[in-house]
Design a binder for these strands. Structure first.
Lengths: 200, 200, 200, 200
DNA sequence: TATGAATGAGACTTCATTCAT
DNA sequence: AATGAATGAAGTCTCATTCAT
């Protein structure tokens, strides 16, 4: 990779990082493109070399960060050699919850953008999921389910929605209970959902 | 009520209705206060007699429409004399789902604003819940639960989050399944959640 | 007319005058809307209250100034009770030439904008000739021609084009001859043109 | 000529042709250098190797195209062995009118740039007439006039201005009459102008 | 020669908000 | 209470030009 090529990527990275910082600090609303380029240390025109507008960079950020979250969880799962889909699902979800508990800023950013649950973003036109790996992650988890589950996609959907929507206020505001208190109830509910989808 | 008084309310109503129409049609972003007052047929300055800014009118709209949704559901429940908290919860949830299936625009508006689940808006500072009746609705449902449920608020939280986040794409995009197909699975999951909270 | 009404017109006038000054001094190209509002002493937003953009104000200026030129010439003609269409035409043309010789800035502005001759602007879509009085002026001159001229509109067209295009460099650069030297030749040519259109 | 040399000229040609196409299609205003280089298939920096800016390439285009027009007309005249300055002038003018009737895009481009008559461009600083052959063309026509004409340059000026300004709307919009209808009147007027300059 | 990423000035425009009427 | 002209800060975005490769 040439020097120019390298520099080019650095600028893009810098813009993405700065945008994330500002969006999470002040909200996308109160962040202007001027703010971003100023803090990123690039010229205004450069922004438009890589992104269409404020919402474009935001979407790219969401996809990027959310994908990383899932990728990391899958990676950890492989490292820990978890067996059986039930344990795999619970492992991945637990890993993601832990990651988001560690990184509340990311939780806020993702939840604000993915809105009502993670699944949603797979359908909305506003989010360009070119590099989306959430789907892949989901597929990867379902690989060894075989005939034991009636409707694996629907099952995953319900699990992800329940998880995604209930952890938010628990992690951020300890409402209605702290995340550690929520977890047993949540996992029990997830197990019930899996139960109801299992064939006999 | 004098004619002036009446006229005053009419203007406020007109502004609210027009704002709802424009917010749902073009998004709050692409709607300017100029747009609202123009279509509402009032002067720009008049807007500021009733609302602080665009976000203020939006919040008032969210609260108003969401409250009506819950109020109507409770009203229907009372009309139908449903007995037992389990049936009451399921009745109310079913009623709300039906209402939102009938009024997809409202579903979109509410979900966009309440974000990750209905419960969330009770905590967020952005939503001014002066006239909030969602809490009341919730309380009203839990009234006759007594000691049979360990942690009724947590239980309601999980039920509402699961419901709120999973119906969205089902109603709007039939994804991953149509709402009628989702309902049995959803209600079974809700029953399981109630089960796990019941004391022995 | 109320005070507000008055003030409103004053702002518009101020913008028009300042724009004319800057357009003629630096060219429309090198004049920004910022320049105009700054010198006119109004806010930038005010500009957009009255004009669509730089080209809109320019068109309105052209029409306004050119119309005044013709109106004044007709007015002078009436004051001097000129008899016969031949003398009327020559009187008006002479008056306009004299006015433009006195006001070279106006000559430059009009010629730059009307391009190839005055007649042209009556056809081009870019110039909104709502208040155009050039046509009226033309009609007014032709009123008493009757049957003596075969094709009065075509005759006027040729006379106006010849005049409009030939005086420009004569007045501004004394090229190829000074305007006083050009006049006799020009008027002789105009007379010839009239001759050729006279019936018998 | 080496291959590199050739390629070099090809790029310049490509830039000129593309600029002409875009200027006539969208106007010089709405054409950016980016547009030109993109369509011409060269890099942005390359543009600056050949031209100073957008206006430079425009001027070079005007001169080039207008010169060709005159050169061709003179060439045709020589091919047809026209005798006498009166017939020569009329032949050349007729030839140019025919060429422009055939190529309305060129007419538009030239008239927009030469503004009030062809003669003008010989004086304006904006047009760099390095390779100008219009003057030469003019001189060439006047060569054999000798003492028969009092002020040949002034005569040519009036003829060219009358022609240049009156054909525009006639050819493009058939206003006030079609070019074929205009021609006899125009040529009669030109003859009258020549008459008035002839000594005795 | 040729390239095209980067620049950054500044153009154009919108719009929330004010305030005199 | 109601108006809407005026404001001007702030935003988005373009584009001619440069320069390291």
């Amino acid at each position: 990779m040439g020097k120019a090529e390298e520099n080019k990527l650095k600028k893009r990275e810098s813009l993405l990082d700065t945008a994330f910082k500002l969006f999470t600090e002040k909200g996308i609303h109160n962040t202007s493109i001027s703010d971003i380029v100023e803090q990123a240390g690039v010229a205004k025109g450069t922004f438009y070399l890589y992104f269409k507008d404020k919402y474009d960079i935001n979407n790219k950020l969401v996809v990027h960060r959310a994908s990383k979250l899932f990728d990391d969880a899958l990676e950890h799962m492989r490292e820990n050699v978890v067996e059986g889909y039930r344990d795999r699902i619970l492992f991945v979800i637990n890993d993601i919850i832990d990651s988001l508990t560690e990184d509340k800023v990311l939780l806020m950013f993702i939840s604000k953008n993915l809105g009502l649950g993670f699944s949603r973003y797979a359908m909305e036109s506003t989010v360009v999921n070119e590099e989306s790996s959430i789907k892949e992650a989901s597929e990867s988890l379902l690989k060894d389910i075989g005939d034991e589950i009636k409707n694996p996609r629907l099952m995953m959907y319900m699990i992800i929605e329940l998880t995604g929507s209930s952890i938010y206020s628990s992690i951020l505001y300890d409402q209605p209970v702290k995340i550690d208190e929520l977890k047993p109830y949540l996992y029990k509910a997830i197990n019930s959902i899996i139960d109801q989808f299992e064939t006999e």
